[in-house]
Amino acid sequence: MLENLYKQIVMDHYKNPRNKGKLDAEGSIQFPYKNPTCGDVMVLYMTVDENRNIKDVKFEGEGCSISMASCSMMTDLVKGKSIEEAERLIGVFTDMIKNGELPEDEDELGDALALSGVHKLRARHNCSLLGWNGLDRAIKQHTH
């Protein structure tokens, strides 16, 4: 039952991605990222304000339903959050995918919790982490 609901959430994000498109705002960060294991690609666009909050974030990309849905979920989750909070959420999501650890507060990951079953599918780990890894690298390269 829960698995069906999770599949519906993933497919909804895949078919109706949130925050998809370019961000042309002045001073915005543009960060291309490619999954070397399957060829999925995305470009992350992000603006960070003077208080180190992610003011806006969008993505463009091509890939499987898991990678594109995960990018949509990630942008939805981190928009408006501080860089520090985004980094913490990257860690929580990565632990869930790689180690099967569900967050203590299950609401914390929002719709991204629907990808918890990917933990059992080792070959799909990089798909679900595409956007998150791209965000992590973009933050490290542009804000530290």
Rank of each mutant, 00 (worst) to 15 (best):
E85N: 04
H13K: 10
I90A: 06
V57C: 00
G100W: 04
K55I: 02
D107T: 14
K79T: 04
Q8N: 14
G21H: 11
G110H: 06
L121G: 11
C38M: 01
G39S: 04
K7V: 06
G63E: 05
V118D: 08
L130N: 12
L109Y: 04
I90Q: 01
D95S: 12
E87W: 00
R137T: 14
W132N: 10
D107H: 12
M68G: 02
D136P: 05
G134C: 10
L23R: 01
Y45L: 05
S72Y: 04
A138P: 07
S72G: 05
R124K: 14
Y14H: 11
P36K: 04
L89Q: 04
E50C: 00
G117I: 11
K34S: 11
Q141V: 13
D56C: 03
G80S: 08
I9V: 14
L89Y: 10
L135R: 05
E60Y: 03
L89I: 04
R124N: 11
G117D: 13
R18Y: 09
M42Q: 01
G27C: 07
F93T: 01
N53I: 08
E106K: 15
R122K: 15
S116P: 11
L102N: 09
L113N: 06
L77G: 00
N51K: 12
N133K: 15
R122T: 15
L23A: 01
N99E: 12
Q30K: 11
D12K: 14
E85L: 06
H144Y: 08
L102W: 03
K120R: 15
S128C: 13
H144K: 14
D95E: 11
V78E: 05
Q30D: 00
I29S: 01
K15M: 09
A114P: 11
L23H: 03
Y6Q: 08
D56L: 04
A86P: 02
R124D: 06
S116C: 15
S116N: 15
A123P: 09
A69M: 03
L77S: 00
G80K: 00
H125I: 10
D105I: 13
G134Q: 13
R124A: 07
D24H: 03
T143Y: 09
N126K: 15
S67M: 02
A69N: 08
L130T: 10
K79I: 02
G61F: 07
R137N: 15
G61A: 08
H144D: 15
D111L: 01
K98S: 10
M11G: 12
L113P: 00
V92T: 12
I29H: 00
Q30T: 12
V78R: 02
Y6A: 09
K58L: 05
L5N: 10
M73R: 05
E85Y: 03
D49Y: 02
F93S: 07
L5W: 07
K55D: 13
F31P: 01
C71S: 14
A86D: 00
H142Y: 14
L5S: 08
